[in-house]
Design a protein around this nucleic acid. Structure first.
Lengths: 222, 222
DNA sequence: CGACTCCTTGACAGCGTTCAACAGTAGTGG
DNA sequence: CCACTACTGTTGAACGCTGTCAAGGAGTCG
């Protein structure tokens, strides 16, 4: 397991006077590992990150995807609860936890209220995800995933997803084959168009069609 | 949906000078509903509580069981994220949120640090549960459930579970039949004894056997 | 005692996994 | 520029775990 110092590329190293420093992580590299001391908090400038847990036999559960503008790696205890990897080449701003949550707060640092809000958002997301993993079928999961990404990317004209089918599968508790089949079902049922190119991108050209998906009577969206 | 005032039984009503008041909820009654204003925080004196989300068609996902000594109903936002019901006749102490988290804190109130710890524990539990729901099979889920309850009840000589098979199933994302079959498999594989009586209780007489279960090489416990 | 709930067990169906083959794309190096 | 490889995604076929449906036993309560 590579430590952070082995993988980051400083583009503007954090001096003692600036709270945040800029770093880059190439695609598919580890940002931090589950159980490591949670010394840093990350803010994504561009790119995307997956956080996940692994079982000893390799089974993986992705807890969340983090996109540009998101903050991740915020811990209250001393260690990261999940591992984090870059999905794409990703630029992040990093702050030392002890400074970000210093008492009294320094300029640009997090207030306790902001920390509470972050943690609450994490809980909300996890609890909605529990319902999805425990009680929704494959097509519902994939549809909910698309809806979530669409909302988080603020319903762009073209929805481009950075993660692979396997990432989506490990997020939704499915196999990548089942995810692929669920996409096919959604396509053939006219829920959205899928003009390709097919490689690592899903392009949704018609926003109204995605809106219709969200209004399925059979689809119990969160 | 009944309001709290319709279901509680005051045994020692909260006066303006005491932070906590005592109340009782009969078995299978609602304590609060998802989306209601989160005006109270609950501390369980005796009994047990389930918190859960429902889909419109009735599918239910239990997020957590709360036992004697546990605190639940703590929210940062304004509304409860899950519904809560008493599993047994349950005695709780209730505090008004605004007083419990008042600034400056009054005597007996929560510090921000304690609140953060509570929220962090909630996140940890949820994220472990995501892995269970997304990536573990039925027998693994039931075994993990037993291990969790055993730990939380501090490995008592006899482990008595207050919840029904259906509650367990809705906690583990299974059906009650599958839970029942998983118990049978664990029993027949000699992991633990199951002498009954069979009604709404699972009695584990041999603690060392439960310990052996936790040490299964094939069982990737959390 | 009768009605109800809870639990177990069997038979069967079905959804999702597993295994496999193949196509399309990107990346690499000659 | 092209050959080669690796990776991603799609699709088919068969399997199997879990869900569904059903029946029956046991305990509880009025």
């Amino acid at each position: 397991m590579l430590g952070r110092s082995d993988t980051y590329t400083p583009t503007n190293s954090a001096s003692k006077s600036t709270l945040w420093g800029d770093f880059k992580y190439p695609r598919d590299t580890e940002i931090f590992g589950e159980g490591e001391p949670a010394n840093f908090v990350y803010h994504i400038n561009s790119g995307a990150v997956r956080t996940f847990k692994l079982l000893p036999d390799g089974r993986r559960q992705i807890g969340a995807f983090h996109l540009a503008g998101d903050i991740f790696g915020v811990e209250n205890g001393g260690a990261y609860r999940l591992s984090a990897e870059a999905i794409l080449d990703t630029r992040v701003r990093i702050a030392k936890r002890e400074r970000l949550f210093a008492e009294p707060p320094e300029l640009g640092a997090f207030s306790t209220k902001e920390l509470l809000t972050l943690l609450t958002k994490t809980i909300e997301h996890a609890e909605n995800h529990l319902l999805l993993l425990g009680r929704q079928n494959a097509v519902e999961r994939v549809a909910a995933f698309l809806t979530e990404m669409d909302q988080r990317l603020q319903s762009p004209e073209t929805l481009i997803l950075p993660m692979t089918r396997r990432d989506i599968a490990d997020y939704l508790g499915l196999t990548h084959e089942t995810v692929s089949r669920a996409f096919a079902i959604l396509i053939h049922s006219g829920v959205f168009s899928f003009p390709g190119p097919s490689h690592r991108e899903i392009v949704l050209h018609d926003r109204t069609k995605l809106t219709r998906m969200a209004l399925w009577p059979e689809h119990p969206l969160r």
